[in-house]
Structure formats: C-alpha cells, structure tokens
Amino acid sequence: MVRASNETWEKIGVYICLIILLLFVGFPFVWMFITSLKPSNEILTGGLRLIPSHFTLQHYYDVFKYGNLGTYFRNSVVVALSTVVLSFLAVTPGAYAISQLKLRGSAGLARLILLFQMMPGVLLLIPLYILLKQYNLINTHWALILSYSTFTIPFCFLLSKSYFDGIPSELFEAAFVDGCTTFGAFVRVGLPLAAPGLMVTSVYAFILAWNDFMFANTFINSDHLRTLTTGIVTMQNSWGVQWGAMTAAATVTTLPVLIVFLIANKYIIEGLTAGAVKG
C-alpha cells in the first residue's frame, strides 16, 4: 500500500518536472508563434494573453512577399547539404585509411586534426576572407561551404574514424584475402558497416552548417545568396525591430526543423550521442 502510494507520488513528481522542462524549452517557441499572429499594435501592448484578440497572417505575407525568406531558406539548404557532401567526400577515405590501413604517421595527422577542432572560427575569419578573395569566391556559396569545412572536417573526421575503428579489422583482412583492393574493401566493407554512423555524422555536420551566422554574415553581401540566419538578423534594420515580421520569419525557420525532428528524431538522436558515448 505504502509502496504504491510512493510510486504514485514519484510518478506525479516526475511528470511535474517534465512539464516544467517542456515549458522551459518549448514556451519561447510557442510565444514566438503567437506573436507572429498578432497585429502590430497588439505585440507590445497585448500583455500576457496567449490568445490575441485578432489573428493576422499579415507578417507571414510580408516576409515572403518582400523579405525573400524563401530564397534564404533554399540557400541554407543548399549550403548545408553541400558542406556535408564535401566533408563526407574528403573525410571518409582518410578516416578509413588511418583507422584500418595502419599508415605510418597517421597518428600524427589525427592528432593535428584533433587540435584544429579547437580552432576558434573568428581566428580563421580574416585569413579565409583574404584567401577566398584570391580565388574570387567572396559572395558565393563556395565561400560558405569552404569556411564551414573548417569546423565540419575535424569533427566529421574524428567521428567517422571512430566508426571505422569500431569495425573489426578481421573483416577487412578477410576482404583482402578474397582479393579485394584496399579501395574495394573501403567500398564493400567499410562504407556499408560504418553507414549508420556516417549518416549521423552528416546530420550533425548539417546542423552545424545550418546554424552558422558569423561566416555567412562576413562573406555574403548579396541578398539572393543569404542564408536564413543572416537573413533574419538583417531584418532588424535602423528603424527598429518589427517583432511581427521577425517572429514570423523565425517561425518559418523553426517549423521545418521541428517537422524533420519529429519524424526522424529517434535515428538522429541516437546518432548524435554516439560520438560522445563512444569516447
């Protein structure tokens, strides 16, 4: 009897904590969404009311019609995806080679790359600008893809190396015995077995690239090349923040992320944790 009641109390306590946690995490987004539906004159003076007296889609209309939000969104997707593809192409063969082919000097390279994961992005901003300019890449998406590689490459390398490390070397040796070249073993054994881990690495790299503000703000000048993060920040112009338009734009930015997460969360999350848990 006492046990059961304890159990019930514990359950209630856990759920109260859960509700507080969800409010803490989710309410700012809810409030953002509510604000985006309020008429301008109610945003500052509407108080704490959760349901505005009037609903309007005017702010959404404005940001799409006048604010190029669709373009920003497409650019963000393009840049983040390309960053992932580039990092992937560059990183996986190297990670495989260092993990499984026992190259001399590979430990040194891995250590060096590891060290560069600590590299402050702001430190690379100035030389990258000068370098990109030399190749006429300022104000192109290439500038972003290359600069995002500065943080995705060390990360992806270390994570995918840990996935290749996780594959028993006997499997590769067996493949060699069967007459596979090292490349054949990479493609037939390494990639398929590391695939779940590599997907996870890609998702993580995608998020890092999707979230960047600093490089995008510094390297992109043209409106039609802007990503969402800089696009939204630019909406705060010298005549003051129009919170209605800003929250509408923020909602549009958040919604796809939310949808993708609700659909694929189990897979994504399990992957995200792999790197740290493995360590």
């Binding site: 006048y66 190029n68 000048n221 630019t234 909406m235 112009n237 338009a245 734009a249």
Partner: peptide
C-alpha cells in the same frame, strides 16, 4: 548590385 539599409520586409519606403 545595390547595397542599402532599406529593408522591404519591414519598411514601406523600402
């Protein structure tokens, strides 16, 4: 290419 502070998303003048 015009660089300007006028933001059409938030300003009628823009």
């Amino acid at each position: 290419e015009v660089w300007n502070d006028f933001n059409p998303a938030t300003s009628i003048d823009a």
